[in-house]
Write a protein that binds this DNA or RNA. Structure first.
Lengths: 290, 290
DNA sequence: CTGGGTTTGTCTAATGCTAGTCAGGGTAGG
DNA sequence: CCTACCCTGACTAGCATTAGACAAACCCAG
């Protein structure tokens, strides 16, 4: 049981907006105290969070409200999944994926990828399923439950799927604006590619430059176009130093460039470098704001 | 569910043009809200993106609209399709590509790939431009004119493009029939992926299993479905022995399976193994005949 | 090469809709 | 009483709608 202020804090929706959504779309109807104060419960908050997630993805509030309003109906065409993915399904798909990787069963791996990405919009699946699954895969590899062949095979399959999604997302013709890639020595590029794809889907002009890129090439890449931002992904601790050096060089070469860092070890990389949130959706939103 | 502004951002098509295309070609009919606002869904956006792609490639909007209207992606385009590629242009693109790789200029590499694949249908470009260009890249690397970083970067960019093309080619719903991949130890997978893509575009059901696949996994892959054929790519001389072993195991496990070998070193691999022609187009034709 | 017709992207003007925020006033509790 | 919080209703900047018009680019017969 929460007041509107607490509800705002937990959902990330401004207080005034909470009231507006309730009044306009009747998406929730929190109980009231005798004096008329709103009282939010967990269930209501979940609905609001689901709605906010859709709005973050670019849905208009009106359509997002319509989508989360009618409780459980699958609604609409296939692949149009909306609110949060079902936790049990997600966990099951993750387990099955790791299992398939352990068996080096490419057919199963491909089928599971197909299935997972048909559960909802790319951004949701990437955040809720793909990244946790890749983490689980890494854990299984470290624990010896998946061998090198299995890990490679699964990673490459993911790579192919992401490459396809990246190519299928429209790039703005007005010329690239954001360069995404990894510093020299870094090789875990799946997160970067997922981010690049989400950014493209959001409407940003994105150039993906891939893994293990020398500083010189970074400089050339940001000079090639009227580039507004560069996103450097830092997947491991070893990649911090090369990433920081790359960031410094970019800032020095082009003062007005927005240099951002994403990935697990991106925090406090260098002065003047924007640290992106871990969630892909949130990271794209943060970048878009600049 | 997006407003017209979001749709514009996602497709890269100006708002006014979106309305004009809808009005003039009826290429899409987005739903409307009660008040008359257009509401775009993912499917509609995909159609618009496909149309914009064609227009970017030089198609007139009218013909592009007709092309995307009846469901399928730009397949065997009339007129443009059969044309031979201009030799001078091809050579020029190859030189520019190797040069871009030498400079590790990812932006240029991507642009050249885009340009080359817009010259004609996938099969033609793959045979006439891509494979020779990859060969030239290998030569340049051997000759020291391209370093490891450049070679890697270029290969990965090609990989991404091929992955996208593979994913974009619809797989036959009747279930996979052909398994394509490389034997254990083999890593040069670009030719295999190009072949797999061409086969899919021809209408075959294709499962691509990637590089460096152990024999066990090959066996599992062909058992997973009513598989009719397995194509093993043999890019280098060192890959002959593992490839031959894989082929023997497959034939032993599944007598009625068509086992074929492609790539530079595929000739006379083992008794009962079909040797595919070097040309991708011809190889797909030969396989299709079985 | 020229001239007329067509195509196509963009613009305008009038009008209505959306959605976040703010102002004025009531409530809880130390 | 005072501070912090909450309520409702109104406001406004931005966004969408239509129909029609227009100039640049393109095509093709002469």
């Amino acid at each position: 049981m929460f007041t509107i202020k607490q509800a705002s804090a937990r959902t990330g929706i401004p207080v005034a907006t909470l009231r507006a959504w309730e009044r306009r779309y009747a998406v929730v109807s929190p109980r009231r105290t005798e004096s008329g104060y709103r009282v939010y419960d967990e269930r209501t908050l979940a609905t609001l969070t689901a709605m906010r997630r859709l709005v973050d993805q670019g849905w208009s509030p009106a359509t997002a409200a319509a989508e989360v309003a009618d409780g459980t109906a699958p609604h609409g065409q296939a692949g149009q999944g909306d609110r949060q993915l079902d936790t049990a399904t997600v966990q099951q798909l993750t387990d099955a994926f790791v299992e398939a990787a352990a068996e080096v069963d490419v057919v199963a791996v491909e089928a599971l990828l197909e299935e997972a990405f048909s559960l909802g919009p790319f951004e949701t699946v990437a955040d809720t399923w793909l990244m946790p699954t890749l983490w689980a895969l890494g854990e299984a590899w470290a624990g010896g439950r998946v061998d090198v062949a299995g890990e490679h095979t699964a990673s490459h399959a993911v790579m192919r799927h992401l490459s396809h999604a990246f190519g299928a997302a429209a790039s703005r013709s007005g010329g690239p604006r954001v360069v995404v890639g990894l510093p020299a020595g870094a090789h875990h590029e799946l997160g970067a590619l997922a981010f690049a794809t989400a950014a493209r889907r959001k409407g940003l002009g994105v150039v993906y430059v891939g893994a293990d890129l020398p500083v010189d090439s970074w400089l050339r890449a940001v000079r090639a176009f009227p580039t507004r931002a560069a996103v450097i992904t830092v997947p491991t601790a070893e990649d911090r130093e090369p990433a920081a050096e790359t960031a410094r060089s970019l800032l020095q070469a082009k003062g007005d460039l927005v240099v951002a860092a994403g990935g697990g070890h991106a925090h406090d990389l260098a002065p003047g470098v924007l640290s992106l949130p871990h969630s892909i959706t949130a990271a794209v939103g943060a970048l878009d704001a600049r």
